[in-house]
Design a protein around this nucleic acid. Structure first.
Lengths: 250, 250
DNA sequence: CGAATAATTGACTGAGATCAACCCCCGTGG
DNA sequence: CCACGGGGGTTGATCTCAGTCAATTATTCG
């Protein structure tokens, strides 16, 4: 290839994000999709229930199997959501961005987390015990319906992923993953849509149901077709349309 | 094999189920998990909003892409939930049993169903426009939280399926599908747990991300190990423990 | 009894996993 | 400033699981 690869255009450590400014928490909560419609007083009351935590890249927020039950909202940075088997195999379900929630909504005793949450970049999260959050949802039915809508949307996404894993070949699955990522995390950059998160071949593989080696080969292929550009830990989509066509045909 | 195969012990057409007895609708609604905690008056009010439909085996309730937006509850029989690609490939997401809901909760204009619902046996469903159902959830926040819980549970199941499709071989995936089915649809029968729904090799394949031929070979293998018994359109699990061990190891 | 649908079985093939070696950055510290 | 170490990425060779194609058998139902 003729191009010189620059340093990654993606920041892995957002400046000064390890702690949320306490004064800004209300503003953050007000921007959370499922709380958007609430009054200032309601937000103030809800804010009382949340505490904040900061994590460095790679730190575990909770592990699948842990009994602790809290509910989290991403305030800053990107959170990795993982699912794993006993023998170390694991899949990367999603990158969560500010405003998205994760953790448990399950209030019954003896329950455990079914997935693992890990700081992908430096992050700040707001958190509250599950029970408290259920009280909040009880008190604000509109918020509960919003959370339900978002959960149904995630269920749709998961069902689509099941379909893709069952019926697409590797190239199509990777193309589809890239499109989803570009849509959610895309930022215009040098004539393409840069996926704004540090993204290794292995990350991409674990999102697409394949291996890092195969992901690498597909990346090379897509690059030579001029549909994407890529370097160490970053990918930019330069032709969304053609990438989408790849998925449609057959 | 030494056994004589009998006629399928599974009924595909439940007696007299094509129409719900109108008098029994309240009883049915009262047994729906997410309405269980409501008062008799609330149930009566909710009942007013629902109408009933009957379908024969194979009939389509709605197709992915259809713009109509209704919300459904299975009253009697089994409903197939499918997801498909443009080119005819499709996966079987689940069999829904009485008390489970399906359809759209999305109230915005211009939305379409993302999956297909099909009568698997003779069925009766109760149905209401999505907007009406959202009003119901608004009026009864406990019900909304129950629906949220059930949706989160489905999301977990979907995530687990993604994991299985990404990391298990065919035998393990089929074993896992059979265990899930036995748990949900199992009925004791001749020393085994009979999966109480007509289940072809192709159905099983489309639930496990493989083909009917491969499913057939795996079935033979599991049968020769004495873990299951099977005939045309039916499967009975005779050794849940060993089937589960198949999944755990490696 | 015959048609239709489901299931089985075999032969072949190929996509992609696995294994292994190597390269290329990039940050660090002498 | 350069040497070095390590993690990410690339590439090739090999091998295998399971998909595909095709023919045959079994079962149910009208």
């Amino acid at each position: 290839m003729m191009k010189a690869r620059r340093k990654s255009p993606v920041d892995s450590v957002s400046v000064e994000s390890h702690y949320c400014s306490i004064d800004l928490r209300l503003k953050i909560l007000g921007r959370v999709p499922f709380l958007k419609s609430l009054s200032a007083e309601a937000l103030e009351a809800i804010n009382q229930q949340f505490v904040e935590f900061g994590y460095h890249p790679g730190e575990i927020i909770y592990l699948a199997g842990d009994p602790v039950r809290r509910f989290y909202v991403v305030a800053d940075g990107k959170v990795k959501l993982l699912q794993h088997t006993l023998d170390g195999h694991n899949v990367l379900l999603d990158f969560l961005i500010p405003g998205e929630f994760f953790g448990s909504l399950e209030a019954r005793e003896g329950q455990v987390y079914q997935d693992t949450a890990q700081a992908h970049t430096s992050i700040c999260v707001l958190s509250t015990p599950t029970v408290e959050f259920r009280n909040i949802l009880d008190a604000y039915p509109q918020a509960a319906l919003r959370v339900l809508d978002l959960t149904m949307q995630r269920l749709q996404d998961a069902h689509q992923k099941v379909l893709h894993l069952s019926s697409m070949d590797v190239e199509q699955r990777i193309a589809s993953t890239l499109l989803k990522l570009a849509e959610k995390l895309g930022r215009p950059h040098e004539g393409g849509v840069l996926i704004d998160v540090p993204l290794s071949r292995d990350d991409l593989a674990k999102m697409s149901g394949t291996t890092a080696e195969t992901a690498s080969r597909v990346i090379r292929q897509l690059q030579s077709l001029g549909l994407i550009r890529s370097g160490r830990q970053w990918i930019s989509v330069t032709n969304l349309t053609k990438l989408d066509e790849l998925i449609q045909l057959q």
